[in-house]
Write a protein that binds this DNA or RNA. Sequence first.
DNA 1: AGCGCTATGGTAACCGGTGTCAATCCCGCC
DNA 2: GGCGGGATTGACACCGGTTACCATAGCGCT
Lengths: 338, 338
Amino acid sequence: MARAKDGKPTINDVARLAGVSKKTVSRVINRSPLLNAQTREKVEAVIAELGYVPNPQARALALRRNFLIGLIHDNPNAQMVLGVQEGILSAIRDTEFALVVRPVNRRSPDMLDDVRTFLDQQRLFGVLLLPPISENDALAQLCDELGVTYVRMGSVRLDEDVHMVASNDREAVAKAVGYLIGQGHRRIGFVAGPEGFRSAAERALGYRDALDSAGVAIDETIMAEGNYTFETGIAAGEKLLAASPRPSAIFASNDEMAAGVLHAARSIGMSVPEDLSIIGFDDTAIAAHIWPPLTTVRWPIQAMAKAAAIKLIDPVEARDQPSHFLSDLIERASVAPL
Amino acid sequence: MARAKDGKPTINDVARLAGVSKKTVSRVINRSPLLNAQTREKVEAVIAELGYVPNPQARALALRRNFLIGLIHDNPNAQMVLGVQEGILSAIRDTEFALVVRPVNRRSPDMLDDVRTFLDQQRLFGVLLLPPISENDALAQLCDELGVTYVRMGSVRLDEDVHMVASNDREAVAKAVGYLIGQGHRRIGFVAGPEGFRSAAERALGYRDALDSAGVAIDETIMAEGNYTFETGIAAGEKLLAASPRPSAIFASNDEMAAGVLHAARSIGMSVPEDLSIIGFDDTAIAAHIWPPLTTVRWPIQAMAKAAAIKLIDPVEARDQPSHFLSDLIERASVAPL
DNA sequence: AGCGCTATGGTAACCGGTGTCAATCCCGCC
DNA sequence: GGCGGGATTGACACCGGTTACCATAGCGCT
C-alpha cells in the first residue's frame, strides 16, 4: 500500500502513483476545467484506488477559510433546535461542510464573550443564529466585527435579507385568532410570551390585529403573560379562566403554554373543546400528543433552516432563497365552534 | 495595529512585537515549562494586546489531530439529543474542542457509507455514538478501522469500558415494574419497543425479571410492541385494554408510547390512575406535561454524555469516569395503588 | 581556566494542501 | 520551417502553526 504507514494517503502519494505533480492532483480535486481528460481519469483512478480524501485542515489553512458552519442557540425548545439541525444538514449534505453547534446561555453576562471566544477559536465559515438569541443585535454586530458571516432566523425581519430568514408571526397569529373569530368566538383570551422576546411581541401584535379588524375590544383581564413553559401556562390559564365573563377561547403564544392552559381548564372541570377552545403555536411534538390534539400554528422550521444554511454557504443559490416564510394553521381538535 | 491588513494577527506578528522567535511564542501557548518567566510575561502581554488566537486549522495540521468531536445520531427523541449536546458541551467548555453534529438515517442503506464519508472528510478527533445507532457494531468497527476513537452511549454495556457509557435499562425497568407490584398490581401490561433496538430488548428483560421475582406468570395477551411513537402507543394500548381480564397497570417502554396508552385508555372512558396505572420511560418533556403527569424512569442523559465526552478527549480524566449510570424512578401521578 | 551541564532561544524543515507564474507541448498559419 | 498562441502541466513559495536539532549562555565543578 502506498500510504504513510500511520495513516491516510496524502496528495503526494496520489501524485507519485499517478506520475503527475501535486498541483495536478489538486486540480483534479478542485474540478479545474483546464485539465486533459486522460490525465484527469488517470488521477481519479489512483484516488479511488487509494481511497484518498484531502485533509480538510490543510485545505482550510491554504484556502484561508474552513468548511464549518456554526449554530449558536439558546433555545429551550428541543424540537425546534433539532428541526433546525436537520434543515441545515439537508443543505450541507453532499458538500464538504459540517455543522458545529454551540448552545449558549442567554442569561449569562458572559454570553457575548463566550461567543467571541468560540468564534475566535474556531474561525468558522459562518454562523446561524436562532431565536431568541438571534434577536440580539450586539451579537450580529460581533459577528460582523469578527468577519464571520451570519444569518439570523427569527419571527420578523430585523436585518437585511442576506442576514435574515424570517417567518411572519404577527400575520400567523392574526390568522389563528381570526379563525377563532370565524368560529363564532368573541371573548378570546391571550397568553403572551415573555417580555424581551421579539416573537412574543409579534404574536401579541397579531392578536391585537385580529381583534381590531373584527371590531372586538381588547380586554386586559383576559390577557396574561408566561415564559413559554408549561407551568407558566397553567398559571396564565388559571388567571384567564377566573375572569368574568370567562373567555370561550384562548390563544397561547406557544404549545407548552397551551398545554398548561388545557391542564388548568381540566382541573376546574372544563372540557376542551366543548367549554373552551385553545390554539397554540409552534406545532411541537406535544401539540399532537396531548388530548385533545392541539390546533396550532406551524412554521416551517426545517425549510427555513435549510434556506438559512444555503444563504450562508452558497452566494449564488442564496439569491433564490426566500427571506420570508409563511406559517400554517394546523387544525386539530382543540377548537369547537361557539 | 501590527496585524495583517486582512485579518487576525499571526504567531509571527506576536513574535516580532515581543522580539522573540515563533518558537518561543509557541512555547508560551503550549505552556512549555522550560521558559524564562520574564519572557513568558512579555509574550503574554503582546498576545493580550493583539488579541492573538492561534489558528486552529494550522495547529490541527501541524499536530496531525484536530479538536472536533462528532456526535452521530439518528435519534427521534429531540429532548434526549439536546440533553446529550448540553452534556458534551459542559465537558468541552473551556477547552478548544468543538462539537460537530451529524444526524443520520438509520433506515438508509447508505448509512454506513454516509458515516464513512463524514469521518473521512472531517478527520474528527473522535465521535460519540447515540442509541439506537450506537448499538450497531459495524459502526463501531468502522470507527476503529478509520482510526477515529469512539464512545458509545447505550442502555447496556455492549463494548469495552473505554468505548462505553451505559445505563442499565433492565434493572431500571425491573425497579419500575417492581414498584407497580409493590402497589398491589399483579396484572401488568407491557408495551415493548421495536425489535432491533437493544434498549427495547433490555427493557423487556427487566419486565420479565420483575414478574419472575414476584412469582407472576408472563401473559402474552397483555404484551404488545410499538416503535416508540405516540401512535403505536395508542394501538398497543387498545390491544392491551381489550384483553380480558384487563390489566390494572401498564408499563410502556418509553414516554411517547405511555402517552399513547393514556390516550387509548381515555378514549374508552377509563380514568388514569383510578382505573389504570401507567409508567413510562425516559422522562422526556411530554411526561411532565400531560395529564396526569406521568410516573416514569429517568436516566441521567446529561451526566452520561458529559462522561462520554471526557472519555473521548481526556485519557487521564477518563479513568475516573464511570461507565455505568443508574436510572431513577420519577413518581408523579399516573400510578395509584390497587 | 577548562569542562560539562542545563536552560533558553533560534533555524530550518515539515504538516498537506493551494496560488502564481513560467515552461512545455501541440497546432495552425504564413 | 519558423512562429504565435492556447492548452496543459510543473516548480516553488506560502498558509500558520509544530517539531527536531543546533547554538549560545550561564553556572558549578575540578
